[in-house]
Simulated scan of single mutants.
Amino acid sequence: MKVLVVEDDEGLRRLLNLELTHYGYEVKTSGKGIDALRMYRDFCPDIVLLDILLPQLDGFELLVAFREIFPGAGIIILSVINDKESKLKAFRLGVDDYVTKPFDMEELLARIEALARRAFLHERVKNNERLSDISSRIEIDDKSRTLRSGEIEVRLSSLEFRIFKILYSNTGTVVEKDQIIAVLWGQERAPSESTIPVYIKYLREKLEPLKIKIETVRGVGYVLKVEG
């Protein structure tokens, strides 16, 4: 996961860089609006920590620009500004979370972790009316929850389809079980520990005629593969 820190306080910028790097994030930092805009284009971060009071361009202006350039990043505002109007403005412009300074580092890291899980998958599972598989032979119809390949048509239940879309949108990449749960139920846990494995079993059976495989990576998650 890549994190861009946009903060004009050099001390805080260094601290965030140190903490996030320690927890395994790839981090870049910027203290100015224009530099941050360029860095956002080049770095394509998964998460952005964004101050509001910045030189050149303020956080609100950057927020709008970021959403236009690449809307998929998760953005958390970190600011001393704590009034209702500013918070509402930020959320209306598309921020995902708003944390006021001073903040507890452990809590911020937990918020980043939760947002990172959603950012990794959520933007990739937007509902489109029709998508084509990488191989250009699997057609997906979101409205009817059907998959087609030539004369073969498979209809999925609502939960089967949502799980499939998560795996499909990350074809060839292992998706952790907890990441699937985060997209489907947010902060809540799955109805039971067996829910995901059971529905993966159903999906495997239904996808077999389409030559789509779901492999289990023991102790980690699942990976979807499409045969040529």
Score class of each variant (00 low, 15 high):
Arg118Ile: 15
Lys225Val: 14
Met39Val: 11
Trp185Pro: 08
Leu18Lys: 09
Ala36Tyr: 13
Asp51Leu: 05
Leu88Met: 14
Ala190Thr: 08
Val174Pro: 10
Ile47His: 01
Ala73Cys: 08
Phe164Trp: 00
Tyr25Pro: 01
Val64Tyr: 06
Ile200Tyr: 11
Lys101Leu: 08
Tyr202Leu: 00
Ala119His: 05
Glu227Thr: 14
Thr21Gly: 08
Asp83Asn: 15
Ile138Val: 07
Val154Ser: 05
Pro191Arg: 03
Thr216Arg: 14
Ile34Gln: 10
Leu20Thr: 00
Glu176Pro: 06
Asp46Cys: 12
Leu50Trp: 06
Ser192Asp: 15
Pro102Gly: 14
Arg189Met: 01
Leu18Ile: 00
Ser79Thr: 11
Val80Lys: 08
Lys177Thr: 08
Arg117Pro: 09
Ser135Thr: 09
Ala119Pro: 14
Val64Ser: 00
Asp8Cys: 03
Ile69Gly: 13
Val175Ile: 06
Phe70Ile: 00
Ser144Arg: 09
Asp142Ser: 15
Glu153Val: 15
Pro209Asp: 03
Ile34Asn: 06
Arg118Glu: 11
Ile138Trp: 04
Ile140Cys: 09
Val48Ile: 13
Ile112Ala: 10
Tyr199Cys: 00
Ile52His: 01
Gln187Gly: 15
Phe103His: 12
Ser158Asp: 14
Asp51Arg: 01
Pro197Glu: 11
Leu57Cys: 00
Tyr199Pro: 06
Arg14Gly: 13
Gln179Cys: 12
Val99Ala: 11
Tyr202Ile: 04
Glu7Asn: 07
Asn17Cys: 14
Pro102Ile: 11
Arg218Val: 07
Phe103Ala: 07
Gly31Gln: 09
Arg41Pro: 03
Thr173Gln: 14
Val125Cys: 11
Ser194Tyr: 04
Ile77Cys: 02
Leu147Phe: 11
Arg92Met: 02
Gly59Cys: 06
Arg41Glu: 13
Asp58Glu: 12
Ile163Arg: 07
Gly24Asn: 10
Tyr23Trp: 08
Ile212Trp: 05
Ser30Gln: 01
Lys211Glu: 03
Tyr199Trp: 06
Ser158Trp: 12
Arg92Gly: 07
Asp142Met: 12
Asn127Ile: 15
Ser135Phe: 06
Ala73Leu: 11
Arg189Asn: 15
Val154Lys: 00
Asp96Thr: 04
Ser149His: 06
Asp133Lys: 12
Leu115Ala: 02
Glu19Trp: 03
Ile152Cys: 14
Ile69His: 09
Asn128Met: 13
Ser144Pro: 12
Glu160Asp: 11
Ile140Lys: 08
Leu115Cys: 06
Lys165Pro: 05
Lys28Glu: 13
Leu184Cys: 00
Leu53Phe: 14
Ile52Gln: 08
Pro55Ala: 10
Thr146Tyr: 08
Gly228Pro: 13
Leu108Phe: 10
Ala190Glu: 03
Leu131Phe: 08
Ile140His: 01
Arg145Gly: 04
Val125Asn: 11
Gly219Ser: 12
Leu53Gly: 02
Met105Glu: 10
Ser169Thr: 08
Arg92Asn: 04
Ile200Asp: 07
Thr171His: 10
Ile75Ser: 09
Leu50Val: 02
Ala190Ser: 14
Phe103Gly: 07
Asn82Phe: 06
Ser157Cys: 01
Glu215Val: 03
Ser194Gln: 15
Gln187Phe: 10
Arg145Asn: 08
Asp35Tyr: 01
Phe120Tyr: 10
Leu224Pro: 03
Gln179Tyr: 01
